[in-house]
């Protein structure tokens, strides 16, 4: 059953560098050595290169069908589960990898495995009618417009940049969300998210600046480059909501960053997290965010004179 377990060590592509360094603009990658780097992976499919993908599929099929027959499974969701489990087992056995590598593989092939698009792992399929431009406005344009409107850019300025008017915008802002809701694979929504994160790079928006203060500009730059700052503000915003404040407004008031710009950066971090999935890194930032959220919560509690049950003690 085991094919050639160890691929050649030459010409190895480090496509799955762990995401310890989630710096958005930096090219440097942190060498977070993986114990499992003996296996060489195809950069597209993340299959090990020491076996044939067809052989892999055949093996999964063989094991799954045998189990389905033996257990007399008929429900489609249970059948899907059987395939899911064997695909994981075979992948981890053939590649001698850890579960993080398997999750990266599963995310990368989410559409094929689950029929569902995965953030950061989805490319636009031009034959998909749900992705055809509406009144000449493609999904990438629509997402960029939403990001900028969400950060307070005037509507007229946006309409001018894209050569549309309020009437056309009304149609776009009805039809694109409707397509997202119709799409059972979530491709439209996931691509919307990916494009939302790239709004700044949209060629038609180059002349348009969000009306940011100098401080806001600097903070936005820092947000893009410093994951700790990003997770701190995410925690702070959450704490603000829990203390009866408008978290988005709080970020704007205190850091000068609009919600559209903030979410745009959030999409980028989410993409990186999916593409370079590493449970230790995820946990690390998650704990950091919780810690910061608790710090801000304490601050907000003090500002309102404490929490309602502070005086009830054990």
């Amino acid at each position: 059953m085991f094919k050639k377990l160890f691929g050649s060590n030459t010409g190895k592509e480090e496509v799955n560098q762990n995401a310890q360094n989630q710096n958005l603009n930096s090219d440097e990658t942190n060498d977070f050595d993986s114990e499992y780097e003996e296996t060489e992976y195809d950069p597209e499919t993340l299959h090990g290169t020491h076996y044939d993908v067809d052989d892999f599929e055949e093996e999964v099929e063989r094991l799954a069908q045998a189990w389905i027959e033996q257990e007399d499974i008929t429900s489609q969701s249970e059948i899907n589960n059987v395939f899911f489990n064997y695909r994981r087992d075979v992948y981890m056995a053939w590649n001698q990898c850890d579960s993080d590598q398997y999750i990266r593989f599963d995310q990368r092939n989410s559409m094929a495995h689950h029929g569902i698009a995965s953030m950061g792992n989805t490319v636009e399929d031009e034959s998909n009618p749900l992705l055809a431009p509406v009144h000449g406005i493609a999904l990438r344009d629509y997402a960029a417009i939403c990001a900028k409107l969400g950060s307070g850019v005037a509507e007229d300025e946006i309409y001018k940049a894209f050569g549309i008017d309020a009437t056309i915008w009304g149609e776009l802002n009805t039809i694109w969300p409707a397509r997202m809701a119709e799409d059972t694979t979530f491709s439209v929504s996931v691509l919307f998210g990916q494009y939302f994160g790239e709004a700044d790079q949209h060629p038609k928006l180059q002349g348009i600046k969000t009306n940011l203060s100098e401080e806001g500009e600097a903070n936005l730059e820092r947000l893009k480059n410093d994951p700790y700052f990003y997770y701190e503000l995410t925690g702070a915003r959450q704490a603000a909501y829990e203390y009866g404040m408008d978290g988005a407004q709080w970020i704007l008031d205190n850091f000068g960053i609009g919600l559209g710009d903030f979410q745009s950066v959030a999409m980028k971090y989410m993409e990186l997290q999916n593409q370079n999935f590493d449970s230790n890194v995820v946990l690390h930032y998650h704990e950091y965010q919780d810690e910061k959220q608790a710090e801000y919560a304490e601050k907000f509690a003090a500002e309102q004179g404490g929490n309602v049950a502070d005086d009830v003690e054990f």
């Binding site: 009144h135 406005i137 549309i164 056309i168 149609e171």
Partner: peptide
């Protein structure tokens, strides 16, 4: 004179 720069497709009312 160009009022709008894009080409309309079959939308909701347009």
């Amino acid at each position: 004179h160009e009022f709008i720069a894009i080409t309309l497709t079959d939308g909701l009312f347009l």
